[in-house]
Amino acid sequence: GGGGSETSQGDAGGAEEGTESNEPIVIRYAHNQHESTPQHEGTVLFKEKIEELSEGRIEVQIYPNNQLGSLRETIESVQAGQIELAQQPIGMISNFVPEMTLNDLPYLFPSEEVLWAVLDGEGGEMYDSYLENQGFVGLGYMSGGPKQFSAHKPLRTTDDFAGTSIRAMEAPIVISTMEALGANPVPIAFSELYNSLQQGVVDGQENPNQSFVMLNLHEVQDVVTMTNHSWMIYNNIMNKDFYESLPADLQELVREAMEYANDEQRLLMQAEEESYISELEELGTEVVQLTDEEVEALRQATLPVYDEFTDVIGEDLMQSILDEIERLDNK
């Protein structure tokens, strides 16, 4: 109940006053990152924007740090309507929407501009339709930065990767990519990553520089090689039934606010990415940049991964996105 007193209780027909004192619609927005990250900042930007645009008709409660469950469980909870909105890595969502495995193909996007052009354009529209079949409404993408490999040595060529054991997420596409590069992927839980590197259970790992800095991996790793082999992308997904239960004008405002938050968050992440790299160098971690030829050789080595995952992703989808990327790249 609101702050209603005796008068508002007696005034049963007072529809106007009723709407005014109505509780706002609450959107619970869950994500897995710490409060100090641009990812969290992105969720805050959405909260501020939508609360402003809707003039208080919508209230957003943010739950950082996996407070409402692991990544997998959070996505499941959005699907079930237990949580209204979540910001989740595409790599996890593809366990629910296999077509989106596409996004984690190695060296898929030639540049960050093409990446966003595809996700904000034709590619994103196709993803949205697959998401909808699984009970989600896709609300665009935020950035986690490009992924890099780290180890005790530079990893410039497939020869460098050969015999190097690298901690892998349990996702099959990540494991295949590492195998294609010649490394020995070792599946280890994220919670045991630091210890495993510290104790030498594995030689290296792959993650965006953000994770490297936040987990203090400089204490246990010497070199980050800027392989830029894929991107950590976060997708905002909303429960479909909840979205459809919103009045049309609020639906519009949700989209508008999230579009704003997505754009701003990407800029924040770009700025942060530069500071991560300088921070790495200050902490004494060697940062190795690759030449165009070295990148091309690594890309060639990972081409078999595309064939391996054609069936999972679907040949038509894969071809149309690859064509779209080529068109945008030549522009």
Binding site: R72, Q79, A80, F96, Q134, E170, P172
Partner: peptide, 20 residues
């Protein structure tokens, strides 16, 4: 309810690749 949800939509266990 959870079983139903996971049968209606597909969700695969990331490593074993079996339906959740």
């Amino acid at each position: 309810e959870i079983i139903q949800q996971n049968m209606r939509f597909i969700q695969k266990a990331p490593a074993l690749q079996i339906p959740m």
